[in-house]
Write a protein that binds this DNA or RNA. Structure first.
Length: 216
DNA sequence: CGGAAGATCCACT
DNA sequence: GTGGATCTTCCGA
């Protein structure tokens, strides 16, 4: 029995999300990705599994906060693919961020995966993050840069279709209860700050930032 | 071709 | 809460 099976015995009850799931507006996909599962395969390691707890929607030409706002460039080309592929970018000179492209080809919409809860392969995540395994598991994936570091997501996964290895997003075969979802403003941007395009699982303690106390 | 900003994270006060 | 690390991207001149 490997780490994954020990920590998440229900793996067999997971099914790959069909690409059709992503071919909708980013705001809908961002909300619906909460509670879904990231499954990451790395050669020679146990599979990594995490549950998505925080996302942000970015639109195309109409969203000044979106990388796609200025149109197609070398960096943003993946965003303009048909929904269902990964858009990975490098930022602040040291971090990667993982997005899921949504909508139809040419729109430039995507959803940023901001935080997740580790469910399997934590040993590998601790190692990738350079953290002692005595540290809190919540430190592993609670931010878009941390998530990529822990899951070893880099530019090699740019354009990767998310319905097959080595990186795929899964759902429960038989819909289990989903926790309360909260919409709040996006983080770390200066434009269109007021739009509630960030979605969180309300009761998660693995978010990149605490929710306001008023959000009860 | 220069410069500023950036969908971040960490250490420090 | 603030500032530094670090470097790519994009815009304006």
């Amino acid at each position: 029995m490997n780490l994954l099976e020990r920590n998440f015995p229900n793996l067999k009850s997971l099914a790959v999300l069909p690409l059709k799931f992503y071919r909708r507006p980013s705001k809908e996909v961002a909300r619906d990705l909460l509670g879904k599962f990231i499954l990451r395969f790395i050669d020679g390691e146990d599979p990594l599994l995490a549950r998505i707890v925080e996302t942000e929607a970015y639109e195309g030409a109409n969203d000044p906060a979106s990388h796609a706002y200025r149109g197609v460039t070398d960096r943003t080309r993946p965003m303009f693919e048909q929904g269902g592929v990964a858009y990975v970018y490098f930022t602040y000179g040291m971090h990667h961020c993982l997005n899921v492209v949504t909508g139809e080809k040419g729109l430039g919409e995507a959803v940023l995966l901001r935080a997740a809860e580790p469910l399997g392969g934590q040993e590998v995540m601790y190692r990738n993050r350079g953290l002692s395994s005595r540290m809190q598991p919540r430190l592993l994936l609670s931010g878009p840069g941390k998530l990529c570091q822990a899951l070893d997501v880099g530019l090699d996964l740019n354009f990767h279709k998310l319905n097959h290895p080595p990186l795929q997003i899964m759902e429960l075969k038989k819909g289990a209860g989903i926790e309360a979802i909260l919409a709040t403003p996006r983080i770390g941007i200066s434009k269109a700050k007021e739009l509630p395009y960030r979605f969180c699982l309300k009761d998660s303690d693995c978010l990149s930032r605490r929710l306001a106390p008023s959000a009860t």
